[in-house]
Each structure stands twice: as C-alpha cells, then as structure tokens.
C-alpha cells in the first residue's frame, strides 16, 4: 500500500514534505534501540518520541514514515532535520494502540 493512501484514509497530518513510498508494514516502539534492531525497511513507525535521533534512526533503516501519536508536538529542529534527510514525519491525535487498529482496518499488511 502507498503512503499517500494511508495518509488520506487515516487523516494524518503531514509535518514534513512527503515523498510517496511503498509501505511494508507497521512498527511501534518508543525505544530507538528496538527500532534499530527490529523495524524493517518501508515500515511506518508509530512513536511518541520526537527528538532528532528519531530522524537518524528512521533514515538508517529507511522507514517509510514516522507517525507521531497522541498529537504530540514535534520540535522544529526535528522537522528541519527530517526535511534535510527526506524522512517523512506525520502526526495523529490517536494513541499508538488506536492507530494500530485503524491501520489494520485500512487494509495495511
């Protein structure tokens, strides 16, 4: 499934310039070491973390998009860095759990 389709279906807010990508799955974690060890290329990553290292990790593993949940505010520096590294950052007011259900319903595999 394409990222743009997911953004539309789940009314996600885009915080960075968005490049459309193929989404391979979902990974939820707020620990960077977990993401590094277990997230896969093309995953969308649900997290409540908003610091700059999120961008580094997402870039390293080629995450399709980071979705910041709970509607948390993302610092400007993080957004700036994400634009520089072409990392997509989206936002949702839902919790990670609620968003997980929505993603499955939307038909994401």
């Amino acid at each position: 499934m394409k990222l743009k389709e997911i953004i539309e279906k789940l009314s996600l807010v885009t915080l960075t310039n968005v490049e459309d990508k193929e989404v391979s799955g979902v990974f939820i974690s707020d620990m960077l070491s977990d993401v590094m060890s277990s997230a896969e290329t093309g995953n969308i990553w649900l997290t409540v973390q908003t610091h700059k290292n999120v961008v580094s990790a997402a870039n390293l593993i080629d995450i399709a998009a980071v979705i910041v949940t709970n509607g948390k505010e993302v610092p400007e520096g993080t957004v700036e860095l994400a634009n520089r590294f072409h990392v997509n950052i989206l936002s949702s007011p839902l919790s990670s759990f609620q968003l997980a259900s929505k993603l499955v319903e939307a038909g994401l595999k």
Binding site: G25, V26, F27, I28, S29, S38, L46, S96, F97, A100, S101, V104, E105, G107
Partner: peptide, 20 residues
C-alpha cells in the same frame, strides 16, 4: 512485538476482525 500485540488485542473486541 508491539504492533502485533495491539492488533491482536484490538481483534478481541471485534474492533478489527480476526481474519483481517
């Protein structure tokens, strides 16, 4: 993992169908 755990719990109440 966390995603799978969430999806499985969501399917208990039928929020997500078990087959999905």
């Amino acid at each position: 993992d966390m995603y799978e755990t969430c999806v499985k719990i969501a399917s208990i109440e039928g929020e997500v169908s078990v087959s999905t």
